[in-house]
Write a protein that binds this DNA or RNA. Structure first.
Lengths: 154, 154
DNA sequence: GCTCGATTGTATGACGTCGTACAGTATGTG
DNA sequence: CACATACTGTACGACGTCATACAATCGAGC
């Protein structure tokens, strides 16, 4: 823990801001997973559930794109949530290749609790961080993503 | 790609800044992995190599703490790098439990190339982002980590 | 109507990381 | 010296994600 809070001081010259960012991302996943554990969900499942609850029936590929994961991984997530009865696969009347992923009543109830957990935790994470700082963070991150994309594409 | 750059606009109300941050972290890993592929290294291996090259012989547990991973995972990384002759395990004269992980001549040569790749990529990532913005980002991230830590510890 | 390329979801194997348990070793206490 | 506790590295199984390959299906062009 101490090695995380002061790693700006003893960090090596390579990977400074970047490593801090990745460590923060890891902590975000940890924190959400911890809070979602009582619901027996991890962050990926909770995000999927909340997304479907909010935006209604969606294709698996669409979900994968929105949540930044692959189609195969999304399939297994859907499998697990379907087996537990929180979402359901309905055939698409217009396209027999795809499943429309829709939420069930149980799923809707669980999604409401997910949103509650999310709001509480996000409130805690805002402590000591002003609105303009949050917006600045968001802006720099977006800019960073653009640079990263062009770096990845050579 | 378009879903990444404009996800501030169509992002759901839950997980806004946080999901951007995690997506950015994923892109960072992708970008470094892509650039390190010619050296047949991934980001974890490269970080370990550069760290040992810079700070000299270190304990595996110490490495794991510094790099934010578990001891077991660090063991497998060390295994791979040792098998390829870039680092070596030397017994510690004062403590027979531990290995001192040290770099070899081949490893030092490779580490220099890693540092080069890192400097080039980090330069590209700075495009359009001022120094004070970078410092602000760093500050907010550190603050976020503090909040995350207390959230994780209930 | 038929064919060809593109797309959807799935199966499979691989990889990296994690958590737990364990043996060997060190350190402190009586 | 004996003992208990803490720590290091490793073995093992589990999990989540990824890349690839594949069958089924769609849509466009002839």
């Amino acid at each position: 823990m101490s090695s995380l809070t002061n790693n700006e001081l003893d960090a090596p010259p390579w990977l400074r801001v970047e490593s801090t960012l990745m460590a923060t991302a890891r902590l975000i996943r940890e924190a959400f997973d911890a809070r979602l554990k009582p619901l027996d969900l991890n962050l990926t499942q909770a995000s999927l559930l909340a997304y479907v609850a909010e935006f209604g029936a969606t294709t698996q590929t669409g979900l994968a794109e929105k949540m930044g994961t692959g189609r195969a991984a999304m399939g297994t997530v859907v499998d697990g949530l379907e087996k537990r009865g929180f979402i359901a696969r309905h055939p698409d009347p217009d396209d027999r290749r795809v499943w429309r992923i829709d939420i069930t009543d149980d799923g809707r109830e669980l999604a409401a609790r997910v949103v509650g957990v999310d709001e509480v935790l996000r409130g805690e994470l805002r402590h000591g961080i002003g609105r303009e700082e949050r917006q600045a963070l968001s802006w720099v991150l977006t800019r960073l993503q653009v640079n990263l994309q062009s770096a990845i594409n050579q």
